[in-house]
Measured scan of single mutants.
Amino acid sequence: MIIKINGKYYKIKKIEKNPNGKYTITTENGKKYEFKNVKIFSEEELK
């Protein structure tokens, strides 16, 4: 799965839903981001 952050695309390693309704997304390079609204892309959609 792929996520778009600030115009760049990252591969997703893990998605966790937090009790506060936000999502914590861990990218393949180990960085964590927290979002309220998340749009996930499949690799097929990006081709």
Rank of each mutant, 00 (worst) to 15 (best):
M1S: 07
M1T: 06
M1V: 08
M1C: 12
M1Q: 07
M1L: 14
M1D: 04
M1N: 06
M1H: 08
M1P: 05
I2H: 12
I2G: 03
I2F: 15
I2T: 08
I2Y: 15
I2P: 01
I2S: 09
I2R: 08
I2Q: 06
I2M: 15
I2N: 05
I2V: 12
I2L: 15
I3F: 04
I3A: 08
I3S: 01
I3G: 02
I3Q: 00
I3L: 08
I3T: 03
K4E: 13
K4W: 14
K4G: 07
K4P: 02
K4F: 13
K4I: 15
K4V: 14
K4T: 06
K4Y: 15
K4H: 08
K4A: 10
K4N: 10
I5Q: 01
I5R: 02
I5T: 01
I5D: 01
I5V: 11
I5E: 01
I5Y: 06
I5K: 02
I5N: 01
I5F: 05
I5M: 05
I5L: 07
N6V: 03
N6M: 10
N6G: 14
N6K: 12
N6C: 14
N6S: 09
N6R: 12
N6W: 12
G7S: 05
G7T: 03
G7I: 02
G7M: 04
G7P: 00
G7E: 04
G7D: 06
G7K: 04
G7C: 09
G7L: 03
G7H: 05
G7N: 10
K8L: 11
K8A: 09
K8C: 13
K8I: 14
K8H: 10
K8P: 00
K8Q: 11
Y9M: 08
Y9E: 05
Y9H: 04
Y9W: 14
Y9Q: 04
Y9P: 03
Y9R: 04
Y9L: 08
Y10G: 01
Y10S: 02
Y10F: 11
Y10I: 09
Y10R: 04
Y10H: 08
Y10D: 01
Y10K: 03
Y10N: 02
Y10P: 00
Y10V: 10
K11L: 07
K11D: 02
K11F: 07
K11T: 06
K11A: 06
K11C: 07
K11H: 09
K11E: 03
K11Q: 06
K11S: 05
I12R: 00
I12G: 00
I12A: 03
I12N: 00
I12Y: 01
I12K: 00
I12D: 00
K13C: 13
K13P: 01
K13T: 11
K13E: 08
K13I: 14
K13G: 05
K13W: 10
K13H: 10
K13Y: 09
K13Q: 12
K13M: 13
K14R: 10
K14W: 11
K14H: 15
K14F: 10
K14Q: 13
K14I: 08
K14N: 10
I15W: 06
I15V: 09
I15Y: 03
E16I: 09
E16A: 05
E16Y: 07
E16R: 06
E16G: 03
E16W: 07
E16S: 08
E16P: 00
E16V: 11
E16C: 11
E16Q: 09
E16K: 06
E16M: 06
E16T: 10
K17N: 04
K17P: 04
K17A: 07
K17S: 05
K17L: 14
K17W: 09
K17Y: 10
K17R: 12
N18V: 03
N18K: 12
N18F: 06
N18T: 10
N18W: 08
N18C: 13
N18I: 03
N18E: 09
N18D: 09
P19D: 11
P19L: 10
P19K: 11
P19H: 09
P19E: 12
P19M: 11
P19Y: 07
P19S: 12
P19T: 14
P19C: 11
P19Q: 11
N20L: 05
N20H: 06
N20F: 05
N20P: 04
N20K: 06
N20M: 05
N20A: 06
N20I: 03
N20D: 11
N20S: 08
G21N: 04
G21L: 02
G21T: 01
G21K: 02
G21D: 03
G21C: 03
G21E: 02
G21V: 00
G21W: 01
G21S: 02
G21I: 00
K22F: 14
K22H: 13
K22Y: 15
K22W: 15
K22S: 15
K22V: 14
K22D: 09
K22A: 14
K22P: 03
K22I: 15
Y23G: 00
Y23Q: 02
Y23V: 08
Y23N: 01
Y23C: 05
Y23I: 12
Y23H: 03
Y23E: 00
Y23A: 01
Y23D: 01
T24M: 09
T24I: 14
T24V: 14
T24H: 04
T24E: 08
T24K: 04
T24C: 07
T24Q: 07
T24D: 04
T24G: 02
T24P: 00
T24L: 13
T24R: 05
I25T: 00
I25G: 00
I25Q: 00
I25F: 04
I25M: 02
I25P: 00
I25E: 00
T26N: 02
T26L: 07
T26V: 10
T26H: 07
T26E: 10
T26P: 00
T26S: 02
T26M: 06
T26C: 02
T27N: 01
T27L: 15
T27Q: 01
T27S: 03
T27D: 06
T27W: 05
T27H: 02
T27Y: 04
T27P: 00
T27K: 01
E28F: 13
E28C: 15
E28G: 05
E28L: 15
E28R: 07
E28A: 13
E28I: 14
E28T: 13
E28W: 14
E28K: 07
N29F: 08
N29M: 06
N29H: 08
N29R: 05
N29A: 08
N29P: 01
N29S: 13
N29C: 13
N29T: 10
G30P: 00
G30A: 01
G30F: 01
G30T: 00
G30W: 02
G30S: 02
G30Y: 01
G30E: 03
G30C: 03
G30N: 05
G30V: 00
G30Q: 01
G30D: 06
G30H: 02
G30M: 02
K31Q: 12
K31R: 12
K31C: 15
K31T: 11
K31V: 10
K31A: 10
K31G: 09
K31P: 03
K31H: 11
K32I: 15
K32M: 13
K32L: 08
K32D: 04
K32Y: 06
K32C: 11
K32W: 04
K32P: 01
K32Q: 13
K32A: 04
Y33P: 00
Y33V: 05
Y33S: 01
Y33H: 04
Y33M: 05
Y33T: 01
Y33E: 00
Y33K: 02
Y33A: 02
Y33R: 02
E34F: 11
E34V: 14
E34P: 02
E34S: 11
E34N: 08
E34D: 05
E34C: 12
F35E: 02
F35S: 05
F35Q: 03
F35I: 15
F35N: 02
F35D: 01
F35K: 04
F35R: 07
K36G: 10
K36R: 12
K36C: 14
K36E: 13
K36Y: 13
K36M: 11
K36D: 15
K36F: 13
K36H: 10
K36A: 14
K36Q: 11
N37M: 07
N37K: 12
N37C: 15
N37R: 10
N37Q: 10
N37F: 14
N37G: 06
N37I: 11
V38M: 10
V38Q: 05
V38C: 15
V38A: 08
V38W: 03
V38S: 04
V38D: 05
V38L: 13
V38K: 04
V38G: 10
K39S: 10
K39D: 11
K39Y: 11
K39M: 13
K39P: 11
K39E: 15
K39N: 09
I40K: 04
I40N: 05
I40C: 14
I40L: 10
I40Y: 08
I40W: 15
I40F: 12
I40T: 06
I40V: 08
F41P: 06
F41G: 04
F41H: 06
F41N: 03
F41A: 07
F41T: 08
F41M: 10
F41Y: 13
F41E: 06
S42F: 15
S42M: 12
S42L: 14
S42K: 07
S42Y: 15
S42N: 11
S42C: 15
E43M: 02
E43I: 04
E43V: 03
E43C: 15
E43G: 03
E43P: 08
E43Y: 06
E43S: 04
E43H: 04
E43D: 10
E43W: 05
E44A: 08
E44W: 02
E44P: 09
E44R: 03
E44H: 10
E44N: 08
E44K: 06
E44L: 10
E45T: 10
E45C: 15
E45S: 12
E45M: 09
E45L: 09
E45K: 06
E45D: 12
E45G: 08
E45W: 05
E45R: 04
E45H: 07
E45P: 07
E45I: 12
E45Q: 11
L46F: 11
L46N: 09
L46W: 08
L46A: 09
L46Y: 06
L46K: 09
L46V: 13
L46D: 07
L46M: 11
K47W: 02
K47F: 03
K47S: 12
K47L: 11
K47G: 13
